[in-house]
């Protein structure tokens, strides 16, 4: 039986629902030693800003039970260098590249949206209004519904490619998702990392130099799943699940709840071959359930009122 893993979001076809999350997949070339990146449905590139950003001082990461806190601070090469050094290589790779971008003010977002909208290798734009560990922009925009509306609608006006908005779990996600939808977002990504903190009690120091970081990894998966459920309850546009996916089963949960695709992030750090295993696992799952396409499971839980 031929299994169709493809999924369609805002008119763009993805060969499977496995996307690599921004900040965990570099600019697409780092996986060459491990697997052919064109096997995945899509790659969300490392968040880009107008100017190069060197990020936060070390320490930048701290491991937590079944998770990790990061405060990299959106280190990136800036959009100009990205276009010059990286973009042309992406054109030859057969997967969907999604440009993640962020700024410290609305004008930055708009400027970036314009630039990235014109780049041929980029098929989708993903607005990051949800980073917990930068001083400006990020989560302040993403947790205030009226600011979300303002910033999303400003960008929407200047792009014709699908505009995804990556939401923070901080604040009231039902309200922020509704604002993003009303402002014209084509799809929503839920969730970004959870604002978090850890302290070295022996030396009276914060574990990451920025004090606050973003929690990710398997620990946050059940939270992310519930948030996707809430967002889908609020908006009629496609939602992409993100948070703690480390095996096919986690991704299947997102699909069953109604997400059109899911992103894989932190698990790439501890197992760079995770996407290969998840794609195989998805096929196995569908086969085991005698289903032949991913669309058969998307939203299957919607009318299921039964508890465990």
């Amino acid at each position: 039986m031929d299994i169709d893993l493809s999924t369609e979001i805002c008119g763009i076809k993805f060969k499977n629902p496995v996307l690599l999350a921004s900040g965990c997949a570099g600019y697409g070339e780092e996986f060459d030693p491990f697997f052919d990146i064109s096997i995945v449905g899509g790659v969300c590139l490392k968040g880009l800003s107008l100017n190069e950003n060197e990020g936060n001082n070390s320490p930048r990461i701290w491991e937590t039970p079944s998770g990790m806190i990061n405060a990299i601070g959106l280190q990136n090469i800036g959009v100009k260098r990205f276009l010059k050094e990286k973009a042309s290589k992406l054109r030859k790779i057969e997967t969907v590249f999604i440009a993640n971008f962020y700024g410290s003010k609305i004008d930055d977002y708009v400027e970036l949206a314009k630039i990235l909208n014109d780049e041929e290798s980029i098929k989708v734009l993903e607005m990051n209004i949800s980073c917990p560990n930068v001083q400006e922009g990020g989560i302040q925009f993403g947790s205030d519904p009226s600011l979300v509306y303002k910033i999303v609608s400003s960008c929407k006006r200047v792009v014709n490619k699908p505009l995804w908005v990556k939401l923070t779990p901080y604040g009231e996600i039902k309200k922020t998702s509704k604002s993003a939808y009303e402002a014209g977002a084509d799809a929503l990504v839920a969730i970004n990392t959870i604002p978090s903190m850890a302290i070295d009690v022996e030396n009276f120091k914060f574990r990451v130099s920025n004090k606050v970081g973003g929690l990710s990894g398997p620990a946050i998966h059940p939270i992310a799943l519930k948030m996707v459920y809430d967002v889908l309850d609020e908006v009629p546009i496609p939602v992409i699940g993100c948070g703690g996916v480390s095996k096919a089963q986690d991704g299947v949960e997102f699909l069953l709840i109604g997400a059109k695709a899911f992103q894989v992030g932190t698990s790439l750090f501890y197992n760079p071959e995770t996407p290969v295993e998840i794609i195989e696992g998805l096929k196995d799952y569908l086969q085991r359930k005698s289903l032949n396409s991913v669309s058969d499971i998307i939203g299957k839980m919607k009318n299921n009122k039964l508890g465990g």
């Binding site: 990461i61 701290w62 760079p272």
Partner: peptide, 12 residues
Amino acid sequence: ERMACGYGICLG
């Protein structure tokens, strides 16, 4: 240094 991935993507 503490590192998550070891192969250059986490920037930790």
